[in-house]
Design a protein around this nucleic acid. Structure first.
Lengths: 97, 97
DNA sequence: TTAATATTTGAACAATTATTGAAATATTAA
DNA sequence: TTAATATTTCAATAATTGTTCAAATATTAA
């Protein structure tokens, strides 16, 4: 978390979700739970490098948590932050066309 | 509303709020209700032209409604869309530091 | 009609953000 | 140790977004 002012962090969270790939990452992890961080490159067209950059942005917004297990990195959501800025996100954004 | 797919519109809404000026416009209108669209140029440093461009983005995301009364334009929120993508927004984003 | 005020538009430029490919780093297995 | 796989970092470039200023449009008042 870079900044502690509510509105600054809020804008950062919106920025993090203001990209189709990152929005999809968040909704997929929300649906499936913790995922291997590079599983996504099969699901969407995105290189591993691009994904890595996207993770950094989600992480800087404090929306995701990454955990390293051996060679692999796993991504999960920081529900505390998601609920702080986007309460009801799961209900509203999951399983929508 | 340009696109009818839920996630595309959602990303558009996040993009619209992913800028400090636009976030402030939305929270101010939420707090005060309908406002003269150029009242903001006193509140923040932003030219009328920049504000006009910002309104177009908020309008394209279907977040605001503009109403013309004589020479003046008034801005209000489209609560239906705000509630569809960001339920609880008012409660969480109002009167925060 | 002309003048005054309000807002929008468009084009140019600046700034930020996204993507790429190659090289670097880390971990594990052989 | 070397090789293989996973992920990150870096620098370059591409693409998008934000701001500015000037011109255009709209509305009302004189």
């Amino acid at each position: 978390m870079a900044n502690n002012k509510f509105s600054d962090h809020a804008v950062k969270v919106f920025k993090a979700l203001a990209d189709p790939t990152r929005y999809q990452i968040v909704t997929l992890v929300l649906e499936r739970g913790e995922m291997g961080c590079m599983d996504f490159d099969k699901e969407f067209r995105s290189t591993k490098s691009a994904l890595s950059h996207h993770y950094r942005i989600l992480e800087n917004a404090d929306l995701i948590i990454t955990r390293k297990e051996g060679q692999h990195v796993f991504v999960s959501l920081n529900m505390e932050v998601l609920n702080k800025y986007l309460p009801g996100f799961k209900k509203t954004h999951l399983n929508k066309t």
